[in-house]
């Protein structure tokens, strides 16, 4: 593997870890949601980097699958938030 790719992969994992710190500390539900966005995009970037300059086509297919399936969990999570704050009226504090 080209050394440049290894550096890029490690950098992406570092970015992912930093983003994760916010998600762990995040007070509100919105921050939890950011983790889905973060994992999606960083995961796709990692897959592209790991595909070794496009030599391994399967990884780019996996990146497509990931891109298409990221919305599902986010929309599912949003449908949960919607009912919570609307009907139960416990407000946005992180009570879940």
């Amino acid at each position: 593997m080209h050394t440049l790719l290894i550096i890029a992969a490690c950098g992406l994992i570092l970015a992912f870890a930093i983003g994760l710190v916010r998600v762990v500390r995040g007070p509100t539900k919105g921050d939890r949601l950011l983790s889905l966005q973060l994992t999606g995009t960083t995961g796709i970037a990692l897959l592209i980097v790991l595909s070794n300059f496009g030599e391994n086509n399967a990884l780019i297919n996996t990146a497509f699958v990931l891109a298409l399936l990221a919305p599902i969990t986010t929309v599912a999570y949003l449908s949960v938030i919607k009912t919570l704050s609307a009907t139960d009226g416990r407000g946005e504090s992180d009570d879940t």
């Binding site: 970015a15 983003g19 950011l34 973060l38």
Partner: peptide
């Protein structure tokens, strides 16, 4: 690659 990493790190630090 440098630019890409810079923007990803910027996004994560911004998130923080």
């Amino acid at each position: 690659f440098g630019f890409g990493l810079f923007f990803f790190l910027a996004g994560s630090i911004g998130l923080l």
